[in-house]
């Protein structure tokens, strides 16, 4: 696109947006609808311990998070459709022994940290998607250093088609279990604390493992294309 046209377009978009921002209620003033309506209810009746963000993501607005997980899944599948003309990936140039040693050394620790982020999302900032990005990044790092073939060997071979859909599948399972326990799809049974905890953990793990495999496969699909 013509750079002047682009600049004019962006300006034309930005000016009304900035004007509208200025006309909005001032950030942080407590009597605005954004603080007095739905959000206050979340803060007042949300869980007393743990991460309120996770509670909103998985519980009050679980359906949206399900949709977002499906977006990531379908993104992978769309890339796989596009990248069907396969060429074997290039082997990596022989890695530096120092880099190779360090990457081997830190890989298990980063993996541990990734799972920590996935599971600690229930209590502190973190959660499935963030952990998935860490684990996926780890696979990509290994691919950069040792070549895509090695990165592929880190993924579960035969279980891969099942596990890459782990995010949506975990949500569907939680939806059905919650539906049986509470009478509403994606309901979380607060009267059964153990089941409640297990469902939240399961969904976070599903998002985390599924997301990590999706990021890894995106990388491999791009290397092969």
């Amino acid at each position: 696109m013509n750079p002047r046209l682009a600049a004019a377009f962006v300006t034309g978009l930005a000016v009304p947006m900035l004007a509208a921002m200025a006309a909005l209620p001032r950030h942080g003033s407590p009597d605005q609808p954004i603080h007095t309506h739905v959000a206050r209810e979340y803060i007042e009746s949300g869980p007393e311990t743990g991460n309120l963000v996770t509670a909103i993501l998985l519980d009050y607005r679980g359906m949206d998070t399900f949709g977002e997980v499906v977006v990531i899944f379908v993104g992978l599948v769309a890339v796989l459709v596009l990248a069907r003309h396969r060429e074997p990936a290039l082997p990596a140039a022989s890695p530096s022994p120092i880099v190779a040693f360090i990457v081997r050394l830190v890989t298990p620790f980063i993996a541990l940290f990734g799972f920590h982020v996935i599971l600690s999302g229930l209590e502190v900032p973190g959660g499935g998607l963030q952990g998935a990005a860490i684990l996926g990044g780890l696979v990509i790092l290994n691919g950069f250093v040792f070549g895509p073939q090695h990165a592929r060997s880190l993924l579960p071979g035969r279980l891969l088609p099942w596990l890459q859909g782990a995010g949506p599948l975990a949500f569907l399972a939680a939806g059905i279990v919650g539906g049986i326990a509470t009478g509403f799809a994606l309901g979380y049974p607060t009267h059964l604390p153990l089941l409640h905890e297990a469902m939240l953990m399961g969904v976070e793990l599903g998002i985390g493992i599924g997301g990590a495999l999706i990021f890894s496969r995106l990388y491999l699909a791009l290397e092969d294309a």
């Binding site: 998607l129 963030q130 996926g136 990044g137 990509i140 950069f144 995106l218 990388y219």
Partner: peptide, 26 residues
Amino acid sequence: APDVALTEAAVGAGVTTLLFLVVIAR
């Protein structure tokens, strides 16, 4: 918003950059 910040760091600065670099290299 630490949750969003963590996502931005891991996905925005991390994985996306790596995927961009893979595509550029290819």
